[in-house]
Write a protein that binds this DNA or RNA. Structure first.
Length: 472
RNA sequence: GGUCCGAUGGCCGAGUGGCUAGGCACGGGACUGCAAAUCCCCCAACGCCGGUUCGAUUCCGGCUCGGACCUCCA
């Protein structure tokens, strides 16, 4: 399967050619751990989770690295405000992040480096940059010299002149040039710091990503991912730091950026204060994590996505339909490789998850038709050939495709009947009583029992002579 | 102000130089004792103005509106 990705470097969709086809290397910018993850933070995690699953399906070996930034002035500020020690803040927030992302079924990356473990590498990178003439030390700071790197601005499509013209901050006195950015900065006694050739200090502009990606993936790797808002200055600076320190051309060959999550048409961000945490969503019920994951995947990753509760509930209803199919008895079967590949094919075209989901629905319809009856003429018109599966075959294909999307991981019975499960026996007894009434053609009694169950929030489904139930 | 991205039916959302996805909602039907579940059918769209073309929702230009970035940001 030939993959294609939109590459921010070239601003077009490029065929993906790994540096080493036997080992694909992916780096994604992870969280700064000072607060709970909000919905916007979850988007890149889920998007690149699908990307990494796809890569693993296509290539024999994939290394996916995603950092934890646990040294940052936002963390320092939070510690000052709350009085909580920095280490406690970062440890707790990291654990919360892991739990929240697991609830979205995002697999852990292969490597999850922490900035505090890479201070020597960052210092070393600063030294290399200075010795190569790309950085200078001034008043305890180390600054990157933008003028030393003619390609600066190529990722974000800006010329250095434009960048200076648009600069809206005052130029610090220790900068030789207004566009220069801080790689290392001094720490006072109250601020965390490490010894360095320039005195006690701490990392500046996300040099940790450059140091860690080089250490783990090498000076040049395949894909660098993150949110669209990171292109400038974050990734532009990373690229400059890494290329100049390592004397390489690109750092990463493909730069992949996800669009922003919006709420009421505006970016969800901590600085705007309009954010909802992942935990807020998860609190809506056991279904909410998967519903939110589906919500993220039903829009193409590069588009803006406007969050709403109505959309989340629509996703829940759609998952109900999938789990209704999965809960039905069907023989074990092997997935039909041709149909699975047909459904997954859109993912190779710049991760077109909405189209893959449309095909997943078609596979669901085929299973329903095989199981419950009906016609699938409309589906057959779309599929590569009119596949008429035996019961269980399309179901197996659905699960295979869902694995790459990271969906449908719940137990179907648990999804449908979970929650307050202590009344399950009572419900089963009522269903048996109703069935007896139906056999006796005592419709009034059968409907009375069904009415009682409806009042309890239980929905009956009499499919194929078998009565199953779910919570409505 | 500069750079970039987007605008598709009631809502969400793919895609394509002609054959015009999919979902939700609405309406109709099949099935069912009645429902539910399931299946089928129907519905309706490409922001505005020009240009290129036999033909434009798709390509080009302009405009309007929305969003992102311009040294905190996923």
């Amino acid at each position: 399967m030939q993959l294609h990705f939109h590459n921010s470097l070239t601003r077009r969709k490029d065929a993906f050619t790994p540096i080493d086809p036997d080992h694909v290397r992916l780096y994604v910018c992870g969280p700064t751990v000072y607060d709970l993850a909000h919905l916007g933070n979850a988007r890149p995690v889920v998007v690149f989770d699908v990307l990494s699953r796809l890569l693993r399906r296509v290539y024999p070996r994939v290394t996916y690295a995603r950092n934890i930034t646990d040294v940052d002035d936002k963390i320092n500020a939070r510690a000052r405000e709350s009085g909580e020690p920095i280490g406690a803040i970062t440890a707790r927030t990291t654990a919360d992040f892991h739990a929240d992302m697991a609830a979205l079924n995002a697999l852990p990356p292969d490597v999850e480096p922490r900035a505090t473990q890479y201070i020597p590498q960052m210092v070393g990178m600063c030294q290399r940059l200075i010795s190569r003439g790309h950085a200078y030390a001034e008043q305890g700071h180390v600054l990157f010299s933008v003028g030393s790197f003619p390609e600066y601005g190529s990722l974000s499509g800006r010329s250095p002149d434009e960048l200076l013209a648009g600069a809206r901050v005052e130029v610090a006195p220790y900068k030789h040039d207004a566009g220069d950015f801080v790689l290392w900065k001094p720490s006072d006694a109250e601020t965390p710091g490490w010894d360095s050739p320039w005195g006690r200090g701490r990392p500046g502009w996300h040099i940790e990503c450059s140091a860690m990606s080089e250490d783990i993936l090498g000076p040049e790797f395949d894909i660098h991912g993150g949110g669209h808002d990171l292109i400038f200055p974050h990734h532009e600076n990373e690229l400059a730091q890494s290329c100049c320190a390592n004397n390489t051309k690109r750092m990463a060959n493909y730069w992949v950026h996800n669009g922003m999550l919006l709420v009421d048409g505006e970016k969800m961000s901590k600085s705007l204060g309009n954010f909802l945490t992942v935990r807020d969503i998860l609190g809506r019920g056991a279904w909410a994590g998967e519903a939110f994951r589906l919500l993220l995947l039903r829009t193409h990753y590069r588009s803006a996505l406007d969050y709403s509760v109505a959309a989340l509930e629509e996703c829940k209803a759609e998952l109900d339909d999938f789990y209704a199919m999965l809960a039905r008895q069907a023989p074990e079967a092997r997935p039909h490789l041709g149909m699975v590949n047909w459904a997954l094919e859109p993912l190779g075209d710049d991760l077109n998850t909405p189209l893959a989901l449309a095909r997943l629905r078609d596979l669901r319809t085929l299973e329903n038709v095989a199981n419950v009856g009906g016609s699938a003429a409309a589906v057959h018109a779309r599929t590569p050939f009119p596949w008429v599966p035996e019961p269980g075959e399309a179901r197996a294909a659905v699960l295979e495709v869902a694995k790459v999307l990271g969906l449908l991981w719940h137990d179907p019975a648990e999804w449908r009947q979970g929650g307050s499960s202590d009344d399950a026996a009572q419900i089963e007894a009522a269903i048996a009583a109703r069935q007896a009434a139906r056999v006796a053609k005592n419709w009034a009694e059968a409907d009375r029992i069904r009415g009682e169950l409806t009042a309890m929030g239980v929905v009956l489904e009499d499919t194929g002579g078998v009565t199953t139930w779910r919570r409505g």
